[in-house]
């Protein structure tokens, strides 16, 4: 953006005195026949699908009743908790691993490498079982200041957090590393030249910029985690999926209960997607592209522009 005071203004080209303004273009727009055909095709297919489900042997009232059924709600709550806590473990440990991985200290970077190698290389389901059955090989947990029987410590909930969280950390480490590497080394150099130490440089300069690259895939990981948490049912922790199937083993409404679970998963993922949208906005500060208005702001703008249409120019929000 040139400084308005400094840029020499080029002399305006004088318009010819009595030039006739050019005729406005009136052209036939390109017709997109293909779009119409495909839209109609898709609509027909959708109609057939709706028809099939409407006619299918599903007791929708059972679905409706059980959406807010106690066991189901508790399961959904459990799924949400497990997801949030596992992701918290994953993000914090993952960022630590990412920084370790990029450290010039060979011990730190190879430990991080080994961690990622192990946890990415084994299925989450196996890891969940490994944690859950830890008491088979270690009967007591003894960490000096704390001592207890292992199967008292590793409940299904704790096994779920360890299995999902530690596994997630390996993936978050890679995402974090990509984010950190995306930041121009000139930024670190500028910070060092100002007398900032490495820790401050990482925290104040590098990570905030890496966030723009880190957040979109992290949002993905969050949503994946919501779904992957259903594996916890295998170690008989009653989260959303197990809760729904437990109910259906009593009321025999198998399909109905699966639909209930599906609806809840969709609700949760939708809420997370909205959260991601706002987080991305926050970290795009200063990225040059002006922030687009949020849906809420857009609605508000609509409302006010109805009221004061004459004053609000087309673009203003």
């Amino acid at each position: 953006m040139p400084d308005p005071e400094k840029t020499p203004t080029s002399a305006p080209v004088p318009a010819p005195r009595d030039a006739v303004p050019p005729e406005a273009i009136k052209a036939v727009p390109v017709r997109h026949y293909g779009r119409w055909v495909s839209a109609v095709g898709v609509l027909v297919l959708l109609g057939l699908l709706v028809q099939a489900f409407a006619g299918a042997d599903i007791r929708w009232e059972v679905v409706g009743d059980h959406l807010t059924y106690d066991t189901v709600l508790r399961g959904a709550w459990e799924t949400l908790w497990i997801t949030l806590l596992s992701m918290l473990i994953g993000v914090v440990l993952g960022m630590l691993l990412a920084v370790m991985r990029l450290s010039s200290n060979p011990v730190l970077s190879s430990v991080a490498w080994g961690y990622i190698w192990f946890f990415r290389g084994t299925p989450v389901l196996v890891q969940l079982y490994l944690w859950f059955n830890l008491s088979l090989i270690f009967e007591v947990l003894n960490v000096g200041f704390y001592k207890d029987e292992m199967n008292q410590v590793i409940t299904s909930f704790v096994a779920a957090l360890l299995g999902l969280g530690l596994n997630e950390a390996a993936y978050m480490a890679e995402i974090g590393r990509a984010g950190i590497l995306s930041v121009d080394p000139g930024q670190t150099e500028a910070a060092h030249a100002l007398g900032m130490n490495s820790a401050k440089t990482t925290r104040r300069i590098v990570l905030p910029q890496a966030m723009r690259v880190i957040i979109p895939p992290t949002g993905n990981e969050f949503i994946n985690m919501l779904k992957t948490s259903s594996l916890v049912s295998a170690i008989s922790h009653e989260e959303l999926f197990l809760a729904s199937t437990n109910v259906s083993s009593r009321n025999l409404a198998v399909m109905e209960m699966l639909i209930v679970a599906t609806v809840w998963y969709l609700i949760l993922t939708t809420v997370f997607s909205i959260g991601q949208y706002y987080l991305e906005r926050h970290y795009s500060k200063g990225s040059g592209r002006g922030l687009p208005p949020t849906p809420l702001q857009r609605i508000r703008a609509q409302l006010t522009s109805f009221r004061t249409r004459s004053q609000v120019g087309g673009e203003r929000i």
């Binding site: 121009d184 000139g186 930024q187 150099e189 500028a190 910070a191 030249a193 300069i205 910029q209």
Partner: peptide
């Protein structure tokens, strides 16, 4: 010691 770089290296998020 202050340093000024060819490519500015301003912190873009500030």
């Amino acid at each position: 010691i202050g340093m000024v770089f060819q490519r500015f290296n301003l912190f873009p998020h500030m």
